[in-house]
Amino acid sequence: MRAVIRIAAWLYAIAIYGFTFLPVVVLVLFSLQATSFPIPPFTGPSLRWYQAVLSDTRLTSALVNSLLVAVLSSLASVTLGFLSAWGFARFVLPGSALLRGLITLPLTVSYLIIGMGLLVLFNWAGVPKSLLAAGIGHVVINLPLCFAIIYSQMGDHQINIERAARDLGAAEWKVLLMITVPVMAPAIFAGFFLSMTFSWDEFVISFLLTRFETTLPVEIWNLLRSGLNPKTNAVGSLVFAISIVLVVFFELTLLRRKPA
């Protein structure tokens, strides 16, 4: 009986891993063939389409735009999220639960609707479509995430450390920078890292709110109009590779530490 369960478990796990990896393997495999269609049979390795991607200035500048929007919007999200989490966790504020609910509310709304709302508002206010507009949208989706992560990690035991610092004469800003931020570092990094990931991969808000200068997912979307295209395979594989390197890096360095 036990052995049967074990074998069934193994087969099931292999099947799920197979399903999970099938499209990714196909994507990477056919990015490596020189023919103009990424379809079987596989005709041998070539880096032709990678060269095509790297010499395409639309794609490379979109990549830079994406990184810029991701880093800046995540910094804004984590800063606003951290300050508000600290405020709500350390002080008794009237209507606290309601206000916290308000900050986390965007988590329950589709990106499409957040993007639509900003599109209508900016359209009325005469704000032109731009990377900045998309970045504002990315802070809307990531601020509640950063707030929720950091707020949930602000345990009462950390209050005592802060209190001790105050009793020893530290000014409030000193307590913040030298005690709270270092103590909360794992949660802050987790919030920042997740925001980076979501912003980097976000499509619909950028699609609605940018025009000429745009982000990588939107530029990849434009490539899709040409149907199955080995260039899309190549740029997809590159994005995958970059993400894997980042994940492994974060896994090995920052996220390994357990929150205190």
Binding site: T20, F21, L22, P23, V24, V26, L27, F30, F37, P38, I39, D201, F203, L216, P217, I220, W221, L224, L228, T232, N233, V235, G236, V239, F240, S243, I244, V247
Partner: peptide, 22 residues
């Protein structure tokens, strides 16, 4: 792991698998 491809690209990869000549 496949989470870490771009969401748009991940849907496109299924097209490679499921297309007429996929």
């Amino acid at each position: 792991l496949p989470f870490w491809t771009s969401y748009v690209v991940r849907s496109y990869s299924w097209l490679l698998v499921l297309a007429q000549n996929g």
